[in-house]
């Protein structure tokens, strides 16, 4: 295998799985959309029409926002909260942002440390939180786009049913917006909590998401 492929196995594999799943969603979504069209006495639409519809957009992006919310929460929560026995947690006495020495910032930076870890001031402050910040910003953008695409899709459904369209602010208070939002949030929170708790007593040999198989159930913060 080429080295660049092997070096990027995780990123490439999940990128490929994402695209395959999105294609699956496109075809299944089109079929469901056209079922609805027939029920309403409207003409079925083409795949191109569906892929350029707000209905497709909101179905994709409502899932995106919850994933980034999940990682945003997880990245920040794991700074401050610990879980005894979990490889997802830090050791119990390390809760918090830790010392500059532990984090290799400013004068404690090493030769190969990123420049923004060394430089100090606002750049080190931002770089020190960049993973959570980007997850949080992408979440907010996705949620905003969900509200816009969901609003457009909602209004075209309203028109199909000879109902009045609503304003964007009206859509933000609509059950459709919050049902889409919460049904995605609940599953993410359950999955993250499960990962933190189930990994205390269960193992996956060779995975950095797990403790070593022989590690004690009480061992916290070990990966292997």
């Amino acid at each position: 295998m080429r080295r660049s492929v092997r070096d990027n196995g995780l990123g490439l594999a999940f990128g490929g799985l994402f695209l395959a799943s999105l294609i699956g969603q496109a075809f299944a979504g089109l079929a469901q959309f056209n079922e609805q069209q027939v029920v309403q006495g409207s003409e079925p639409v083409s795949l191109l029409d569906y892929l350029t519809s707000s209905s497709f957009a909101v179905d994709v992006v409502e899932n995106w926002q919850s994933e980034y919310l999940q990682f945003f929460f997880y990245v920040f929560a794991t700074v401050w909260l610990v879980q005894r026995g979990s490889p997802e947690s830090k050791e119990l006495d390390q809760a918090g942002t830790e010392s500059d020495e532990d984090q290799r910032v400013g004068p404690h930076a090493q030769d190969d440390s990123p420049a923004w870890a060394r430089v100090g001031g606002w750049r080190t402050l931002v770089f020190s939180r960049s993973l959570g910040l980007v997850m949080g910003v992408v979440f907010l953008l996705c949620w905003g786009v969900q509200s816009i695409a969901g609003w457009a899709a909602y209004n075209s459904e309203q028109l199909g049913q000879h109902q009045d369209p609503v304003r964007w602010t009206g859509y933000l208070a609509a059950p459709d917006f919050w049902n889409r939002t919460f049904q995605n949030w609940q599953s993410e929170m359950l999955a993250v909590g499960s990962m933190a708790v189930l990994s205390v007593y269960l193992r996956q040999r060779g995975s950095p998401e797990s403790k070593p198989v022989g590690a004690a159930h009480d061992d916290t913060g070990q990966t292997g």
Binding site: D7, G11, S54, I148, A152, A153, N155
Partner: peptide, 30 residues
């Protein structure tokens, strides 16, 4: 590290372009 950086940029671009596209569909009211 060149290929790793390229993948990093590809992921961020995918998210950004995807969001811009979906926002556009919503704003066009399609």
């Amino acid at each position: 590290m060149g290929s790793v950086r390229a993948l990093f940029v590809a992921y961020l671009s995918l998210i950004g372009l995807g969001l811009a596209y979906f926002a556009l569909l919503g704003l066009l009211g399609r």
